[in-house]
Structures are given as C-alpha cells and as structure tokens.
Design a protein around this nucleic acid. Structure first.
Lengths: 215, 215
DNA sequence: TGACTATGTCACTATTGAGTGACATAGTCG
DNA sequence: CGACTATGTCACTCAATAGTGACATAGTCA
C-alpha cells in the first residue's frame, strides 16, 4: 500500500501555516539549509507547495515567518546570565568574559542556529540578512551593557570582541560538520571547556594588559 | 549569428584537461562553489561535459585535480615570513604572532581559498576533507616550528591558536559576503589592521600573563 | 592511402527544481 | 438546504541537473 497524500479532513489555514513553518525547522535539522526548497518543505509538511505561495508569497516569506518565530539567537538576558543586577556589578572585563562564555554555550545548544550560521557564510539572501541584523543588534546591546566603551582607551574592545565572536561562530558552526579543528576535538566537552577558558583568559589578559601597559 | 560550440580544430587531451581544471577556478571565482556542476564547468571550459567523466571520472575527480594544482593554503614559508633563521630567532610568542598575522594576510589575498573555506563550513565532502587535511597539516607544521610546546605549561597554546585560527577563518570567509561584522568594516583595510593588531596583542598578552601569573 | 583509436560533440533519459492554472470540496452564511 | 468562498490537491509547464550511448572526425601508424 502506497503512502499517499490524502485530502485533508479538516481545512484550517492557521494549522497549515504552522505545519509549513514547522516543516522548515524539521528540514533544517534533518538536511540543512541546502535542501531547502518549496518541494521539500511541502513534502515534509505533508501539504501542497501551492500553499507556500498562497500563505507566504513564496519560500523567502515562509523562512522569514519561521525565523521570527524560532529563537535563533540567544537573548541578551541569556548572555548576561539572567541576573542583570549582579552582571552590572561585575568589572568590565568580567562582563565581557561572561557574555563571551554564555554566547558560546548558547550557540552550542542551538543546532538550527548553527546551521543557519553556516549558511550565512555561503550566501547572502534577504533572509540571512534579516537574521544577521538581529544578531548584530543583540551583540551591540550586549556590548553596551558591558560598558565596553569604558575600557582603557588603549584597548580596542570592538576588535577584541569581533575576534572572540568570530572564533565562537566558526568553532560552533564547524562543530556540526567536522570533528577536529586545529588540534581540538569539537565533539569533546573537555576541549570545549578549554576553549571557553581560553576565551575568558584572552579577555582578562588583554584588558588587564591595557590597564597596566608597563607590566 | 548565434555563438555555438564548434568542433575543435585540434584534439589534445592534455589541453582539454587543463581547460577543464581552469574552468573550475574561473567558475569558483565568478559564482562560488554553489554553482559548481558538470554542466556549468563544461560550459565555462567551452567543452563537452562528457570529457569530465572520461578524464576525471566525474566532478569530484576534476575538483581534486584542481585542488592539487592550485595553491589553496599558504605555505609554511609564507607563514613564517620567508626567512626561517630570523623566525626561529624570535621568542615563542612572537613566532605565534608572526604566524597568525601572516595567516590572516595570506587568507585575505586568496579569494578562492576563502570561497572553499565557506563551502567547507556547509558540506563535508571527500574534496573538502582532502583540502582540510592539508590545512591541518600546514597548521601543525607551523605550530611545531613555533615551538608552542615550550610555552609555559599554564598556557593552553593549542586552544589559543585554535581560537586565533577560527577567528581568522571566520572573518576572512565572511569578508566576501558581508560588510560589517560586530562593528568592524570588513571592506576597510584600517579595520583589518585593527584586527591584526588585536590578534598579536592577544597572543602577547596571554603568553606573557602565563609567564607572570602574579602580574 | 586505409584502418584504427583517441578525442570531442550531440542527443537523449531521468530527476529535480520553481512556479501556475484548473479543479474539488470543506466550512460558512443566507 | 443552496450558494459562495476559502482551503487544499492535482496536473501541468519550463528550466536545469547528472549521467549515458551513439556518432563524427582528427591524429596516427602501417
């Protein structure tokens, strides 16, 4: 007996919309962004692809809807560790370190975000542009909270955090594809701990070296 | 008058092989790895796609041939700055800093390598695996030359260089796709200088902090 | 020159993709 | 119940892809 798409018993626009949006997530998790297409999504949702055009105007619209519903990026709250008061009580370099550490942990726990991240390396579409704008905004918000501007002027805090963020993105994105990177086992939590420790150490060293340039 | 693929006047297997290999590079530069396919490559080469199967066994074989011919990765010589003697005369942290700086510069000057790098984020194929193995080998060779093992045992040099390498890869790979990353303008040489300075500073700070843990 | 093979082209199949128009029916309102 | 619309399915077009078999001819050697 062949598995066949039967006529639906019920007709519910909202339900179908939700099914399609969910299908994007499922497909992303199963096959990555590369397999994304109207045919594949419709198949995954068990619905007809025409609905993608009717309800979302096409695949980009559907993906946008998915993006605005899924919590791709860690929130500022997540990055500060939840308790804003005690976060703000920390010295600047410890705020940066906390943010960096939490960003890495958050990204590690978000496989779909990592998939999107990988995709953004390759293609710049309206969708990835939107997603990236959100990421940039959150990053800016975090940097403002850390008071990075109050660092010693001899320390280029923006460049420092760009490097930290880039490294984290790269390591997390690749962790789904390869095992070893530059001597680190990206499947091993112990090695991730080492990377995390090093991120923190880098921030502390650079900032304190800026404060005491004489050594 | 329609531009049409005419029968070739000469028949030269080696020349055709070279044309096909060159076409891979051209296509990569023009459209990226995503557009890679037998049809596209053959069109670019002005030859028939059958030859790809006959001479290379298929697209992966052709790409391998391309990979082994093109100098994707900076050589160790390039990373050490050419003069091995004076490189080895430097203190360990300066060797690391030099290697990191030269790696960033080399990657910035290799658009095709950046394209491949982006692609490797997304897909793990035999080809990308081969290329990555070479990268890992060169990286290891460089690390051996720097004598990273002779760092203060309190400093996790492998983790440090993994982060530096990851950041460089990410920033260079994305520089072809987006303009701004985390407050840095990836089209502006001045900002690249800031990033380079920060890489060097990170290495110096972390290493010297390891040597003088008391501050 | 004639015969053979390597080289290159063409034509075809089969699959997959995006996108559209026609149709069927569930749900709803009178 | 009858009519209308929203919802969903189907059937198609058009383009592009990977791969293969048949054919044409340039180059070469006897």
């Amino acid at each position: 007996m062949v598995q066949k798409k039967a006529h639906a018993d019920v007709r519910d626009r909202e339900l179908s919309r939700k099914k399609l949006i969910a299908a994007v997530g499922k497909l992303l998790a199963k096959k990555g962004f590369q397999a994304m297409g109207v045919n594949a999504v419709a198949r995954e949702a068990g619905l007809d692809k025409v609905l993608i055009y009717r309800y979302f105007g096409g695949l980009p619209g559907l993906i946008s809807a998915f993006a605005s519903e899924y919590d791709f990026w860690p929130s500022v709250t997540e990055l500060t560790g939840g308790d804003k008061q005690s976060f703000l009580a920390l010295p600047v370099e410890e705020r940066l370190a906390t943010g960096a550490r939490n960003y890495m942990r958050s990204l590690r726990s978000r496989p779909l975000t990592r998939e999107i991240l990988s995709w953004m390396f390759l293609e710049q579409t309206e969708t990835t542009k939107d997603l990236d704008a959100v990421r940039q905004r959150i990053g800016q918000e975090l940097l403002d909270l850390t008071g990075i501007g109050k660092l010693d002027p001899g320390v280029d805090g923006v460049a420092l955090m760009a490097i930290i963020g880039a490294a984290t993105n790269h390591l997390c994105a690749r962790s789904g594809k390869i095992r070893f990177f530059s001597g680190m086992d990206l499947t091993d939590d112990k090695d991730w701990q080492r990377l995390e420790d090093m991120l923190v150490r880098i921030i502390r060293s650079v900032v304190s070296a800026g404060e005491n340039p004489g050594g």
